[in-house]
Design a protein around this nucleic acid. Structure first.
Lengths: 142, 142
DNA sequence: GTTGACCTTAGAGTTTACTCTAAGCTTATA
DNA sequence: TATAAGCTTAGAGTAAACTCTAAGGTCAAC
């Protein structure tokens, strides 16, 4: 039976985070010591590791809660339930990537257009591009 | 001279957002009407458009504030000042993309491993992968 | 027997960028 | 003239996921 600090170092979470997850129903201590300390058994530890793994992959806390509810009652859930969550997350991630790539491209174009040197910014082409909202560099995201 | 609602529809921001930007020093109305309405002249409008453009590209509010301080005093700032901000932002964006790509890859591996069918989740390989923290799919992000 | 590390709780604070509300005045339209 | 749309302010609420604080109890070691 581990105390919270031990679970923390075992999982790489902080004790604060573990209590926060508990408040959100992701992790629980199946027992308390006589003085009220949280005690985690092997099954609790596995659940905590599940949570940490899922969070690390990018699932939100709500996603993890959904995955856990499947995990504790696998026979009443289908693979489809699981893949739905995963697919939705993949879609989110992919959309975010598309958006960021567009930003990346724009920023790179801006950087390419400017010397970046010590001369004053009076004719800086980045500033000019930002000033002209009809500029080529920026129009990509309109 | 535009009122806030007119500036809003011209820039695609909301009046709420414009006031919020004002509070953060990004946009200001160089005049007020007799009854206290904000009045924006051409220069104010250009600044608002600058802000909107820079935000759209992905600059944070702090970034935009920095760019504006250069904008209003170009002769005392260098191209280097501008490219530094842009480069830092490009680095942020690129790092975020790397992180998300890794998530994307992991999620795709999970999806590929699972049928996603209506059978129950007892042997769902996604759940198994999340349970086994030493799984191949997940280890990539450790 | 006292220091220091660890545990408890409730609850507030952080970050970013809005978004909305309430209460009230102004302006345009019918 | 009534109604609706628009403007004002200060300040609260939202989202996500922590992160920290205060005030206090517990435990192992020197």
């Amino acid at each position: 039976m581990l105390k919270i600090g031990e679970l923390a170092s075992k999982t790489g979470l902080t004790a604060h985070t573990i209590r926060y997850y508990e408040k959100n129903g992701l992790i629980n201590a199946s027992q308390r010591s006589e003085v009220g300390y949280r005690c985690y058994n092997e099954s609790d530890v596995r659940q905590a590791e599940f949570v940490r793994t899922a969070r690390r992959i990018g699932f939100s806390i709500a996603d993890v809660a959904a995955l856990l509810s499947i995990r504790v009652d696998k026979t009443n859930h289908t693979c489809q339930d699981v893949t739905e969550i995963t697919q939705r997350k993949l879609k989110d991630v992919s959309e975010k990537i598309t958006e960021l790539r567009s930003m990346q491209k724009t920023l790179q174009i801006l950087l390419n257009s400017c010397s970046g040197g010590p001369e004053n910014a009076y004719h800086c082409s980045i500033m000019e591009a930002l000033d002209a909202s009809n500029s080529q560099a920026v129009r990509g995201r309109a």
